[in-house]
């Protein structure tokens, strides 16, 4: 299916829970509301026209005003198409249901987002930290504006060429 067909089918099925993002990319970029997140994931994986059986990556993004999103890149090896699924998380309490029930691969990606962004994934089977060391208690380093004991921000030099 091409970009328009995927967008149409998913909008027909879920209606107002879906918001199509206008981009120049060949892949559809789709926002889904947090209530329908797991339902949409299951649909994307199992529907014979969609068949997104492969989770390419899952990562958090911290936008200004403390707004968090998670972005999933999905790929279908059967139909050879891709999709970026994004979820806006609640402002004060970034929390999402876990996608490990749909794709096992989400396990480590969610653990990573949990410790680096402080996004909670409810129902995660193994919510231990993944990358940071055991005694880490300096907060969530991938959040914008984070500073820690050894963190020195780069001086802002916009001058300078490529080579």
């Amino acid at each position: 299916m091409n970009k328009e067909q995927i967008e149409n089918k998913i909008t027909q099925k879920f209606g107002s829970a879906i918001e199509i993002q206008k981009t120049k990319n060949p892949e559809p970029f789709i926002y889904v509301s947090i209530e329908k997140y797991i339902e949409v994931c299951e649909f994307l994986k199992t529907d014979p026209d969609m068949c997104f059986e492969y989770l390419f990556q899952l990562g958090g993004v911290h936008y200004p005003d403390d707004r968090f999103e998670i972005a999933l890149t999905l790929s279908s090896h059967k139909h050879k198409h891709e999709l970026v699924l994004k979820v806006k998380l609640p402002h004060d309490n970034p929390k999402a249901p876990t996608a490990t029930t749909v794709w096992e691969a989400a396990n480590w990606y969610e653990r990573e987002a949990m410790e680096l962004f402080g996004i909670q994934f409810e129902g995660h089977p193994d919510p231990r930290p993944l990358l940071l060391y055991d005694d880490w208690n300096y907060g969530y380093p991938m959040r914008k504006g984070w500073t820690g004991p050894d963190f020195i921000p780069m001086p802002d030099k916009t001058k300078g060429g490529d080579d």
Binding site: T23, K24, N25, E27, F29, F56, A71, T73, S75, E82, V84
Partner: peptide
């Protein structure tokens, strides 16, 4: 580059 999002594989 312009504002936006891309994926590469």
């Amino acid at each position: 580059p312009p504002a936006g999002e891309v994926i590469s594989r």
